[in-house]
Design a protein around this nucleic acid. Structure first.
Lengths: 251, 251
DNA sequence: CCAGGCAACTTGTCCAAACAAGATGCCCCA
DNA sequence: TGGGGCATCTTGTTTGGACAAGTTGCCTGG
């Protein structure tokens, strides 16, 4: 039905609508055409149109409500999952210049915390990497990442300035990063943190702890990222009933 | 097809599966029955089962991948951002006791920032409320909320110790809080903040700025919430498919 | 014994159709 | 003039069917 690399029809339609909204064809606050009109325009069934629209609703681009046409809520909001994982890719996409240097790297037995988060037996080998990352020339982020042992070899083989670690791991080991669980809080910079980020001790830092897993829920890495205040913020969009629903299927 | 207050069939099924997973019927790491089995068990079509499963995948409870049965990723992820809930509702659901007191309230003309966030003309009247909220007896949160003028009367009629302002506004004015946009960063406690929260000046605070809108994208209120460190963290689940969390450059 | 390929299984995509239910404006009647 | 009710429009829910595409294990041939 679909050739290689060709997105599903509903993805194409979602993409076209995204572009049209960005371009202003459907102004913010305005209303989208009805499902019927769209399905005729794109020559697909109403179900396929609904899949496309459901994706945009999940992104927060559209508001949806039974009885009236969908509302355009705003311009593009969502980034790809990859962009959230990769600081370098995110920065480039946002038009900033990212720098980065590895401060420390070590193979070591998993601590209790490592074992817990990566679902490994205590003492299993893990790869620890400490990086300082900069944004537009200023240190912005301290990144402590722990990779599970079964992927450590592949990670070490990758050159440090590789743009997309994700892509490389997919190509070489076939690992897909599919889920991320993020916990956000704040803490005061300790001596080491302060030194590496070039701030005073006690400066508030934004901390994001993240566990990334495969499709099957197998943890691949976990990371403790500490952001210098003012450099980066996080944004969350939610809505009641914004589930990326898949319609029209059947048995 | 559905009586009043009766959820859609796929919602019911999603609910039953959620409970079953919590109960351990489908152990974490294990696999769910096939769509076919579930559709037979619940006597619905495969499409309806798929809608239920899609909701659980979006919540991060399940992993999904073409070709194999769905994987149970974890038990209920409490307090994520997937639901749009007030502090009081959240606290109660999490088994904590929330307290709250209004420190200050005023009607005033909209500042530039108010006007921008609430999409009002500068100078339009808004209602400003400063609350201190506690969790299990300790001050946890400083909440500065600005309500749009068109809803200010209804808000003022609500008694200060009302548990859920959200619910009351729905009942009385029919206003639905449908979308939330949250921006998270950190800052040091100022003199006033420190005093009200009972912490030392300079303590790192987690700040969440939030704009809540109706279905149609009309802003209802915006709020600047500052959390005492250690009392609350935020958890967000992302996946290829649904990215409620994004990163953005600071100012 | 191992590798390649095939078959069975399972999820993903798409279509066509029907009815339920919320929203909205218009018209008519009091 | 004002309000209630109805017609109409639009999205929400559900069904049934068909085929594509990814996964996995078995089985066969070298």
């Amino acid at each position: 039905m679909r050739g290689l690399g060709v997105a599903a029809r509903y993805e194409q339609i979602a993409g076209e609508l995204r572009v049209a909204i960005d371009r202003g064809d459907y102004p913010v606050g305005g209303r989208l055409p009805t499902e019927g009109e769209l399905s005729e325009r794109y020559q697909v069934s109403r179900g396929t149109v609904r899949q496309a629209l459901a994706a945009l609703v999940a992104e927060g681009l559209l508001g949806s409500r039974q009885g009236t046409r969908r509302v355009v809520l705003g311009a593009r909001r969502s980034q790809s999952f990859t962009e959230l994982r990769s600081f370098a890719q995110w920065a480039r996409a946002a038009g900033h210049k990212a720098t980065g240097s590895v401060v420390e790297t070590a193979r070591r037995p998993a601590s209790t915390e490592d074992a817990l988060r990566l679902q490994l037996p205590t003492g299993a080998e893990v790869l620890y990497v400490l990086r300082v990352r900069g944004l537009d020339g200023q240190p912005a982020l301290l990144e402590r990442t722990v990779y599970a042992g079964w992927i450590a070899d592949a990670v070490e083989r990758i050159e440090p300035d590789c743009e997309s670690v994700t892509q490389r791991l997919l190509d070489e080991v076939g690992v897909v990063f599919a889920h991320g669980e993020h916990v956000i809080d704040t803490l005061a910079a300790g001596t080491r943190d302060a030194e590496l980020l070039g701030v005073r001790r006690g400066t508030p830092l934004l901390r994001v702890r993240r566990v990334t897993t495969t499709h099957a829920g197998r943890p691949v890495e976990w990371s403790d990222d500490r952001y210098r205040p003012g450099t980066v913020t996080f944004r969350i969009h939610n809505s009641i009933g914004a589930n990326p629903l898949v319609r029209q299927p059947g048995e």
